[in-house]
Design a protein around this nucleic acid. Structure first.
Lengths: 234, 234
DNA sequence: CATTGTGAAGCGTTTCACAGCC
DNA sequence: GGCTGTGAAACGCTTCACAATG
């Protein structure tokens, strides 16, 4: 067997930052910037320069010592690493408030994730057009996934329907799921699930606000000088 | 100065899981379950039991050895720790597609984060009613924040307007921001920002799909037995 | 005696510090 | 000379393993 160079494993934390770098680099490129240092990119991304260099080093040695990184080349490499050299059609399960907003959001179609289908269980919604896609019955899910070669599914159902949606997506052959329902999905090993939960995000903010008010009561010093930092994603 | 017991610092990773535990515990409570073991909670939350015990230990020693945790008491303690013993009104900046969907989503109002205001820069949207809230001019933001005592702002503007929205929110007195715009915000130290970026989430999934297909080509073994696990949020 | 609470080990991520290189 | 690439140290989180205990 040839020693078919097994691809470097990139740490999860780095994978989560590559899209941010990519977005910034694409903007820079559009603005005519063709070279950037780790420090320059770090400032724009709200992280530190060593982290940028470590992260980029997982892609290979694409920088030039003493100079910096070629913006376009970096864009190319990150896109390749993230699998963004082709589109990934997605299917949305649930054509309610959220499903419709997602379909119409633009963030999908514009960024390489065209909405190739949207399904719902409610016959009242069938054939209504949501951002260019006709809403189809949930039963057609498997057919749509197969016909369009879909690997990524989005769950935008009420919480009670979300596990069923996940089961159907997996059975249909989808291997990655973006879940907007506030429940923990149970899926077979090997299926990648990411969850976006508004209530969780707000509750984390609430925690920080609550701490802040406790600190106020105790008359503690605030570590809040007027200095300005980027992206305090605490 | 009295040694006013400085509140335990809870690790970020734990804070991010408490809302999940809370949601599960609330469901259990509603279902008549009044006691739960770390293992039971862990299974439902898709984590391991040791993690649950460590996490809960930061709240204090509220379990009973040999027995487990009292569900209602845990709900109470987590809510208190997260600052959910009262509502946190939020203001949404941006009444477009996303802003409207968020306002109408229910996840806000139902879970202790009533939408106390929604503002936009477009006069064409003023006074239209979005999920019970009238859209007001961006200029009234500071007034709304002050009048309603708002600490949490939500940015649902296009990316180009997001930094301005953040600046206005901060100036108005908001100290926590949930940002849906795909840009890295620059805010003063002390302001907590959390970012939700659909494109980032999808690109992370894309990375995993891309790896999968590379592995397929190399004829590598898939680590994908038929076993079933909860919440593989890889 | 089942289950919690927690030191200690293990592991992944971040940051430092500087050698390597253009 | 300036900036990258990277071992090594530092850090924080997870998991283990077991003493403590209702």
């Amino acid at each position: 067997m040839p020693p078919h160079r097994t691809r470097r494993r990139i740490p999860d934390a780095t994978v989560a930052r590559l899209p941010i770098y990519l977005q910034i680099l694409a903007e820079q490129s559009a603005g005519g910037v063709d070279n950037i240092s780790s420090e320059g990119l770090a400032d724009l991304a709200g992280v530190n320069a060593a982290k940028v260099r470590k992260d980029l080093s997982y892609l290979g040695s694409y920088g030039t010592r003493g100079v910096g990184y070629d913006v376009d080349h970096l864009v190319y490499q990150i896109r390749r690493e993230l699998g963004l050299d082709h589109d990934w059609p997605v299917v949305i399960v649930g054509a309610g408030n959220l499903g419709q907003a997602l379909a119409g959001y633009g963030g999908f179609n514009d960024r390489g994730f065209p909405v190739a289908g949207i399904v719902d269980i409610d016959p009242g919604k069938f054939d209504s057009v949501v951002a260019g896609a006709r809403v189809r019955p949930l039963e057609e899910l498997a057919q749509i996934v197969a016909a369009k070669g879909i690997s990524i599914g989005v769950i935008a159902t009420p919480p009670t329907a979300a596990q069923d949606a996940a089961d159907r997506l997996v059975k249909a052959g989808v291997t990655s799921i973006l879940n907007f329902a506030p429940i923990v999905l149970s899926v077979p090993v090997g299926i990648v699930v990411r969850k976006v939960d508004l209530a969780v995000e707000l509750q984390i903010l609430s925690y920080h606000e609550q701490r802040r008010s406790v600190a106020d009561q105790n008359g503690q010093l605030h570590a809040v000088p007027a200095e300005r930092g980027r992206g305090a994603t605490a």
